Amino acid sequence: DFYRCHTCNTTDRNAICVNCIKKCHQGHDVEFIRHDRFFCDCGAGT
């Protein structure tokens, strides 16, 4: 499962994972996106 962060203006080409929300995007306006054509390269392994 992935998310888009409207606060940081993520686009259709990138998304964030749950670990990104916990570490970098906590309290931001995020939108849940189940699956799409992207991956998270944060290195958290999710």
Rank of each mutant, 00 (worst) to 15 (best):
D1I: 15
D1Y: 10
F2E: 04
F2A: 07
F2R: 05
F2G: 05
Y3P: 04
Y3D: 03
Y3L: 06
Y3Q: 06
R4E: 04
R4G: 04
R4I: 07
R4Y: 13
R4S: 04
R4C: 13
R4N: 07
R4V: 11
R4L: 11
C5F: 02
C5I: 00
C5P: 02
C5T: 02
C5D: 03
C5N: 02
H6W: 08
H6Y: 07
H6V: 11
H6R: 13
H6G: 09
T7Q: 06
T7F: 03
T7I: 01
T7M: 00
C8N: 01
C8L: 00
C8E: 02
N9W: 06
N9A: 11
N9S: 13
N9R: 13
N9G: 12
T10W: 05
T10Y: 10
T10R: 12
T11V: 14
T11W: 04
D12K: 15
D12L: 06
D12R: 07
D12G: 12
D12W: 03
D12N: 13
D12H: 06
R13I: 12
R13N: 12
R13E: 13
R13L: 11
R13F: 14
N14E: 06
N14F: 06
N14M: 06
A15C: 05
A15M: 14
A15P: 10
A15Q: 10
A15G: 06
A15T: 10
I16G: 03
I16R: 06
I16Y: 05
I16K: 08
I16H: 06
I16M: 06
C17Y: 01
C17G: 03
C17E: 01
C17K: 02
C17T: 03
V18N: 15
V18R: 07
V18I: 12
V18F: 09
V18G: 11
V18E: 15
N19L: 07
N19S: 08
N19D: 07
N19A: 13
N19K: 05
N19H: 06
N19R: 11
C20K: 05
C20A: 01
C20N: 02
C20S: 01
I21E: 03
I21L: 09
I21H: 08
I21Y: 12
I21R: 05
I21T: 05
K22I: 08
K22S: 14
K22F: 13
K22V: 05
K23Q: 09
K23S: 12
K23Y: 04
K23C: 06
K23D: 13
K23W: 05
K23I: 08
C24E: 08
C24K: 12
H25N: 00
H25S: 02
H25R: 01
H25Q: 03
H25M: 02
Q26C: 05
Q26P: 09
Q26F: 08
Q26T: 09
Q26E: 09
Q26R: 13
Q26L: 09
G27N: 15
G27Q: 03
G27C: 06
G27W: 02
G27H: 05
H28P: 01
H28I: 01
H28F: 00
H28Y: 00
H28Q: 03
H28V: 02
H28D: 02
D29G: 02
D29H: 12
D29K: 13
D29V: 04
D29C: 05
D29I: 06
V30N: 01
V30P: 03
V30E: 02
E31D: 08
E31L: 03
E31T: 07
E31I: 05
E31K: 06
E31W: 02
F32G: 14
F32S: 15
I33Q: 12
I33P: 02
I33E: 13
I33M: 07
I33G: 04
I33A: 08
R34F: 09
R34L: 10
R34N: 05
R34T: 15
H35Y: 08
H35N: 06
H35A: 12
H35G: 15
H35D: 15
D36A: 13
D36W: 06
D36C: 10
D36L: 07
D36P: 06
R37N: 10
R37A: 14
R37H: 06
R37T: 10
F38E: 11
F38H: 13
F38S: 11
F38Y: 14
F39V: 15
F39Y: 08
C40H: 04
C40V: 01
C40A: 00
C40K: 05
C40S: 05
C40Y: 05
D41K: 12
D41S: 12
D41F: 06
D41R: 09
C42N: 01
C42A: 04
C42K: 01
C42W: 00
C42T: 04
G43V: 08
G43R: 07
G43F: 07
G43K: 07
A44R: 13
A44W: 14
A44P: 09
A44H: 14
A44T: 08
G45D: 10
G45R: 08
G45V: 09
G45M: 07
T46Y: 09
T46V: 03
T46N: 04
